[in-house]
C-alpha cells in the first residue's frame, strides 16, 4: 500500500474543506481499504467520514418519508424499526449483501459508492477502461459470465466496459425513488435515484454523477408507495455472494385484479442499478397475471445485449421478474 495521510473529519463541512487532489473519503473501509491493498485505489489523503454525525435514521422533514444518514451502518439500517416496518424491501436488500461483519462496518454512503467487483478492474496487471481509461476491456473476450447484459458499452473500444454495480441496497433505493443528499464545494444538492449512478458511455471510469469532493450526507426515502414489496437475489451460493441478478419490486394491485402501480429495479445486470421503466409501463392497467408479467419482462429485456458468456443472465432476469411480480400479486 502506498503511503498516505489520514484525517478524521468532525463534520461534513470539515470533510469537504479538507478534500483536495488525490484525496478520497473513507467510510467503513470494506471496499476502499481492499482496493488500496490491491493498488487499484491510490489516495494521497484519506478523509475519514465514518464518524461524522450522520448516523441517524428518522422521519424526513415534511411528507412522511425517512431520512437515513450516510454514516449509518448497513446492519443498523436493516435493523431499524421504521425501515423494517415501512420499507421491508430495503431491509431485505441490505441483509442479502456481504456478511455480518462487513454489514457492521459498511456505511450507507460507502455502499452506494462501492466499486465494481469485475475481476479485471481489481487486477492492476490487466488492462481496464474503468481503472485506466483507454487501456481496453479484457472482460469482453475473457471472463464475463457475471457481468453486464444491458446498458453496457461493449462495442465502444477504448471506452468499452461491461462492469456491473455490486450493491443490493442501491437496487432497493432505485425502486423506492430515493433521493441522495450531497454536499460539496458548490454547496448542497439532491440527486434522485435512479440518477446517481451512470452507465459507462464514453467515461467508464465514472461510476456516478458526483464531482470530486462531493460528499453524500443522507439518503431520503419518500413515503412508502401502496402495495407490497419484495427484494429477491439470485446468486451462486446462499449467502455472502454478489447478485447474478436481483430484483426489487413494488406492486399495487387494484380490487378488480389489475395492476395499479409497479416499481421495479434490477441489480447485477448493468453498470448502474437498472430501473425497469419499460416493464413498469407494460404491466400498468393490465390484469396482474403471470402472462402479463412475463410479457413485461420480455419488453424490458428486449434492450439486453448479452455477451457470449452471459446470455443465461437474460433468462435469469426474465424468470426473476416474472416470479417476483407473481408472488407480489398473490
Amino acid at each position: 500500500m502506498r503511503p498516505f495521510a489520514y484525517f478524521r473529519a468532525e463534520d461534513p463541512a470539515d470533510a469537504v474543506a479538507r478534500f483536495g487532489p488525490g484525496a478520497m473519503y473513507l467510510g467503513g473501509g470494506t471496499n476502499l481499504v481492499d482496493l488500496m491493498r490491491l493498488g487499484v485505489a491510490r489516495p494521497g489523503l484519506l478523509v475519514d467520514v465514518s464518524r461524522l454525525p450522520l448516523d441517524r435514521v428518522g422521519p424526513a422533514a415534511g411528507g412522511g418519508g425517512l431520512l437515513i444518514g450516510a454514516a449509518v451502518r448497513n446492519s443498523d439500517l436493516a435493523a431499524h424499526p421504521l425501515v423494517r416496518e415501512r420499507y421491508p424491501m430495503l431491509a431485505r436488500a441490505v441483509l442479502s449483501g456481504a456478511s455480518g461483519q462487513i454489514r457492521n462496518m459498511a456505511t450507507v454512503g460507502g455502499n452506494l459508492l462501492q466499486r465494481t467487483r469485475c475481476a479485471y478492474f481489481q487486477d492492476v496487471s490487466m488492462p481496464c477502461n474503468k481503472r485506466a481509461p483507454g487501456s481496453g476491456c479484457p472482460a469482453i473476450a475473457g471472463d464475463h459470465e457475471n457481468l453486464a447484459i444491458i446498458g453496457h458499452s461493449a462495442g465502444a473500444g477504448g471506452s468499452a466496459c461491461v462492469a456491473t454495480h455490486p450493491s443490493d441496497m442501491a437496487v432497493a433505493l432505485t425502486a423506492l425513488d430515493a433521493r441522495v443528499h450531497v454536499t460539496g464545494a458548490a454547496g448542497d444538492r439532491v440527486i434522485p435515484m435512479p440518477g446517481l449512478h451512470r452507465l459507462p458511455g464514453a467515461e467508464p471510469d465514472r461510476d456516478t454523477v458526483l464531482e470530486a469532493g462531493d460528499l453524500i450526507t443522507a439518503v431520503e426515502l419518500p413515503p412508502p408507495p401502496p402495495g407490497r414489496s419484495l427484494y429477491r437475489k439470485v446468486r451462486e451460493r446462499a449467502s455472502f455472494a454478489f447478485a447474478l441478478v436481483s430484483a426489487a419490486a413494488l406492486l399495487d394491485v387494484a380490487g378488480d385484479g389489475t395492476t395499479r402501480g409497479c416499481k421495479l429495479a434490477l441489480g447485477g445486470v448493468a453498470h448502474a442499478p437498472w430501473r425497469a421503466y419499460t416493464a413498469e409501463r407494460a404491466v400498468a392497467g393490465l390484469p396482474a397475471t403471470a402472462s402479463a408479467f412475463s410479457a413485461a419482462a420480455d419488453a424490458e429485456l428486449a434492450q439486453a445485449r448479452p455477451l457470449p458468456g452471459n446470455a443465461h443472465k437474460v433468462a435469469l432476469a426474465r424468470g426473476l421478474i416474472t416470479a417476483v411480480l407473481e408472488e407480489l400479486s398473490r
Binding site: Y6, R8, L26, G28, G29, T30, V33, D34, L46, D48, S50, R51, Q101, I102, N104, M105
Partner: peptide
C-alpha cells in the same frame, strides 16, 4: 468487524 479492514486511526 473484520479488523483487517479497519484502519488503525478509525
Amino acid at each position: 468487524v473484520c479488523a483487517c479492514l479497519v484502519a488503525a486511526g478509525q
